[in-house]
Nucleic acid binder design. Structure first.
Lengths: 224, 224
DNA sequence: TGGCAGCTTATTGTATACAAATGGCATTCG
DNA sequence: CGAATGCCATTTGTATACAATAAGCTGCCA
């Protein structure tokens, strides 16, 4: 993707993810074009992409709105994600290389280190967590699967902080990763898939809690 | 989608599916624009969409090519499709209405009729088959799932005729549908999912055979 | 007062012109 | 003779102007 187009896409996407563009609010191409410092053309490209990724919806007369996810939508996305990531884990179990296993161990050690200290370094945890999952996906070796997972991995919820600072959850995540490592080591795809399913389901419940809180807050703001 | 854009998308897509645009061949925006009788703008929209759907790939310098699927790619797509359709069947089992069940029965009866005659009406079979699956997807009630399935359902293989005229396969499909109906009737999601998995796996093997033949033919044409 | 018609304005869709980047070819130099 | 470099042709990216369409408003009529 070229410069202007990429900038527009990343800008708009992060504005949605961060909540700067409020769920449900209308989107005007020209306004975004000005915000991003590009013309409407690359903005339109980005909107189309984001629409495919379901971050944006359009009504029947082609106007765009920031997607407003219900709890059901969120669960739906997570259900698909759990299924796809479990599938990735299963595929990875029979394909992963010694080197990739080593990388997984490295990142899991790092993310443990990030939270096993008086002042937990959550961004560091998240970064190594992301890389951990990326390596599994790479080992699964399915471009289609990668594309599909990208569509359900990022959630447009503002209050992700709530989840991130729940240390108990982070520790459990680390533990799941450890178990995944053993399953991979034993080339046990079924086990890896099962662990991964639980791993993602837990994430869902953490998100769901944050989402409810967020929705409550937004509702009371509207009422005020 | 508006007129010009929609026309361009459908035209290009069907040119790819029909093989009119050969796998691996380069695509030039302006040439397609002329073919479709529109400007480059809607053509570019369409190309982006088709790229997301993996019908088109781009090299690192942004040039577009018609996707050329290996047998592995095909299997990969079918594996995902089997998983997603099984998931749809499972969800449908607990949500499907009496009315939808009736529609399923109707379409399955129709598609049986289409092949239970001296001169089988394959297009009719395919149409009712499509509707049968569409109803299940609707009963599954997940927009995301619907979108994802759309991405792996159509296969850019020319020789689909080979499969379509294998009556034995078509009869087995009908039988699978029958079994699905019973599973739905009993609200047995696990059973429905299992039947659907087998249903799609069989389709894969039929496709794979046609694909191999097709690839052989293309290779020998290149050699000549 | 309520609703509908027609106009006005806002917004998106399409075409086109121009800019940027890439690939291929030819020429030149080692 | 082969490889590297610079130029030209081709192709894609971006901006902008204009067309089409939909929404909202105003005023009229029942």
């Amino acid at each position: 993707m070229s410069r202007a187009s990429e900038r527009a896409y990343n800008n708009i996407r992060s504005m949605i993810l961060s909540g700067e563009l409020q769920p449900g609010s209308q989107i005007r191409e020209e306004a975004l074009a000005e915000l991003c410092g590009v013309s409407r053309t690359p903005v339109r490209d980005s909107l189309r992409r984001l629409e495919a990724e379901m971050f944006i919806r359009r009504n029947d007369s082609q106007r765009s709105f920031v997607a407003d996810w219900s709890l059901d939508d969120l669960e739906d996305a997570f259900q698909l994600r759990a299924m796809l990531e479990a599938h990735a884990a299963k595929r990875a179990a029979s394909r992963i290389t010694r080197e990739q296993l080593g990388q997984l161990r490295f990142h899991n050690a790092q993310l443990k280190q990030a939270i096993d200290m008086p002042n937990p370094d959550v961004p560091k945890f998240l970064d190594h967590n992301r890389q951990f999952h990326a390596i599994i996906l790479a080992a699964a070796a399915s471009e289609r699967l990668t594309n599909m997972l990208a569509q359900v991995t990022e959630q447009p919820v503002v209050l992700r902080t709530a989840r991130h600072y729940d240390l108990e959850n982070l520790r459990r995540s680390h533990h799941d990763h450890d178990e995944l490592l053993i399953a991979f080591d034993k080339r046990d795809g079924a086990w890896a898939a099962a662990v991964m399913t639980g791993h993602i389901r837990r994430a869902f419940h953490a998100y769901a809690e944050a989402h409810s809180t967020d929705t409550e807050i937004r509702k009371s703001k509207l009422a005020a």
